[in-house]
C-alpha cells in the first residue's frame, strides 16, 4: 500500500501542492498531465531526489518522506532510461543487487526469471549504447525491479519508441507488473497509452492532482473544464 498525503514540493518558482493519493498493492496507476504540470517533479519527490516541503509518503506502512532514496524501496525508470554507459547490460541490471552486497554472479542468478521474462539474457554482454530503444527500456525496467521495490515509477516509458515497439513494450510492462505484483505509477501524456495499462488514472494540472479514478470515469465525468480539455485534446491527437 502506498499512501501519499498532502505532499508539496518546490522546484525554483514552480510548486507541486497538496498531492494526496492511495495506491493499492499491485495497482497500475497512470498519471496524465500536460508538459510542465509537475508530473516528473512528483516522481522525483517520491523516489527521494527532491525534498518534500510538506506532507507524508508511506510505503508499505513505513513513513519514508524524509528517507534517503536508497532506503525507500522505490524503483525509478527515467524518461531517457538512464542506463550506465560504462557498464554492459549485465552490470546495469545487477547494479542494485551489487549495491546491496551481492556478487555479480549471484545477482545474475537471482535475476534469471526476470531476465527471461524480459528476454534480456542474450543481451547481457552488450553495451547499452548498442541497444534499440525498446531494449534499453527493458534493461532499465529490469534494473529498477531487481531489488523488488514496493513502488515502481515510470516516467514516460514509451515516449521515445516507435508505434509497434511501443505496443510491445506496454504489453510487456503490464505482464511484468502482474508477474511481480509491484505497485506502479506511470507518467505519460497519452490517453491511449493509459488505456493500455492503467487500472486507475489521475490528472495533474499546474502542480495539483485534480482528479483520480478509472480512466472511463475521467473521460465521462471530468472534474473541470481543464481536465475535459486535456483529455479531449489528447484523445483527438491520438498521442
Amino acid at each position: 500500500m502506498i499512501r501519499i498525503r498532502d505532499l508539496s514540493l518546490r522546484a525554483g518558482d514552480f510548486r507541486v501542492r497538496d498531492v494526496s493519493l492511495d495506491l493499492a498493492t499491485g495497482e497500475y496507476f497512470v498519471l496524465l498531465g500536460p508538459n510542465g504540470s509537475g508530473k516528473t517533479l512528483l516522481l522525483h519527490c517520491l523516489c527521494g531526489l527532491l525534498r518534500a516541503e510538506a506532507g507524508t509518503l508511506d510505503v508499505g506502512g513505513r513513513d519514508v518522506t524524509h528517507a534517503e532514496p536508497r532506503l525507500r524501496r522505490i524503483g525509478y525508470v527515467p524518461q531517457d532510461y538512464g542506463l550506465f554507459p560504462h557498464m554492459d547490460v549485465a552490470r546495469n541490471v545487477t547494479f542494485a543487487l551489487r549495491a546491496a552486497g551481492r556478487s555479480h554472479a549471484d545477482a545474475l542468478r537471482e535475476l534469471g526469471p526476470l531476465l527471461d521474462t524480459l528476454r534480456l539474457a542474450r543481451l547481457l554482454d552488450h553495451s547499452p549504447l548498442t541497444l534499440s530503444g525498446g531494449e534499453r527500456q527493458k534493461v532499465a525496467l529490469a534494473r529498477a525491479l531487481a531489488l523488488r521495490p514496493e513502488l515502481l515509477l515510470l516516467d514516460e516509458p514509451v515516449s521515445a519508441l516507435d508505434g509497434p515497439t511501443r505496443a510491445e513494450v506496454l504489453e510487456q510492462l503490464r505482464t511484468v507488473q502482474h508477474q511481480f505484483g509491484v505497485t506502479t505509477m506511470h507518467v505519460c501524456h497519452s490517453i491511449d497509452e493509459a488505456g493500455a495499462v492503467a487500472d486507475r488514472a489521475g490528472v495533474m494540472i499546474d502542480g495539483r492532482l485534480v482528479q483520480t479514478g478509472k480512466l472511463a470515469e475521467l473521460m465521462e465525468r471530468p472534474a473541470s473544464a481543464d481536465v475535459a480539455r486535456l483529455l479531449q485534446v489528447k484523445r483527438n491527437a491520438k498521442c
Binding site: 523516489c47 527521494g48 536508497r70 538512464g82 550506465f84 547494479f95 549495491a99 546491496a100 531487481a146
Partner: peptide
C-alpha cells in the same frame, strides 16, 4: 549528474 542520482535510487550511498 542524473546518473548519479539514479544510482541513489538503486541502493547506492
Amino acid at each position: 549528474r542524473r546518473l548519479e542520482d539514479l544510482a541513489l535510487t538503486l541502493g547506492c550511498t
